[in-house]
Design a protein around this nucleic acid. Sequence first.
DNA 1: AACCCTATATATAATAA
DNA 2: TTTATTATATATAGGGT
Lengths: 196, 196
Amino acid sequence: MGRRKLEIKRIEDKRCRQVAFSKRRKGLIKKANALSILCDVDVGVVIISNDGTARLHEYSSTNSVTGILQRYDSHVETEKEISAEIQVTEHSKYSSMATRELLQETERQLEKTNADDLAVTDLIHLENELQAALIQIRSRQTNLLLESVKGLHEKEKLLREENKHLEDNIATTIKKNRRGNEMSDLQPQRVTLNFL
Amino acid sequence: MGRRKLEIKRIEDKRCRQVAFSKRRKGLIKKANALSILCDVDVGVVIISNDGTARLHEYSSTNSVTGILQRYDSHVETEKEISAEIQVTEHSKYSSMATRELLQETERQLEKTNADDLAVTDLIHLENELQAALIQIRSRQTNLLLESVKGLHEKEKLLREENKHLEDNIATTIKKNRRGNEMSDLQPQRVTLNFL
DNA sequence: AACCCTATATATAATAA
DNA sequence: TTTATTATATATAGGGT
């Protein structure tokens, strides 16, 4: 795209690399913006450079980054409804919807391509699709984490209640004991624990 | 870039929009790939289309998506070390490092630009930088969530131990009672509470 | 680092297959 | 729906400021 053809490999000259980075980063974000507007889709771009000081550059068509991430979540939510199983069947979740489509796509690709000219671009494409599946799994993990927190809070509450009951129990037992020892007449205990 | 100049606004014809999406998506990912290789940086692209069936497309220069997200985390981790405060001071975290740089950059931009020709591109740039700050805050939230889970697990363990002690306490109390009062019909209580 | 310039490389809109 | 063609629009390498 410039004065001469450029091989796609790391630019060794630091100066040139830096300039190219600045230009191409701008270009990439511009294209991301055009794509999102022209085709009415949400696009997010993240660039992490490591030249000495690691810097983070970002673009998102949605107002906030959390916005696009919430879209992830709702996307994942939909899949969850389809395979609303428990942890034991967790494995089956990975073969739902998009993942199944992905495998079909892979088969199609392999069918129509001779082993000879299995283009690198094809492989890159498949790789990207697989990565898309991975990000979905990651989102799923985030959701599970949130559920985990919720569950743990409930557990904590129940355990605290149980503790309270047990303490009361001990208190009354001791009291009655004392009384019973004095009057030689111990009363039967009733231990009632109601929760859940 | 085609037969005629195209305004950057939503393509109304669904057919054209679909074709443009397919092409531009491929183009964007190709450019993202070139950028990451040429300039030796990590790049992630996320595209969410909503044409009826919401679909998620993704690209990441790192082997796994979690990889690039871990880079986020470590990036955030560094900032955390600098302002390692508790939740109460949470607010102060938002004005650390990158955010401070960001504000300086904003000032610089506003200084050198007349109100007249404050280019849209400048605004877009600033917007993107602000979004970068937002994604960092989001990562921070994820970290806090993970810490929360850890803390809750510890809490749970302590509560369970406490419960065990209390149960033992009750058991021995009852045993002693019975021994000291043979005719009593008092039965040792079994307090078993299983949840989750 | 951020802009200009310009020759060239790439991307892609319209169109057809 | 994708795929191929092709004319045109954009992006950008190298060079200078």
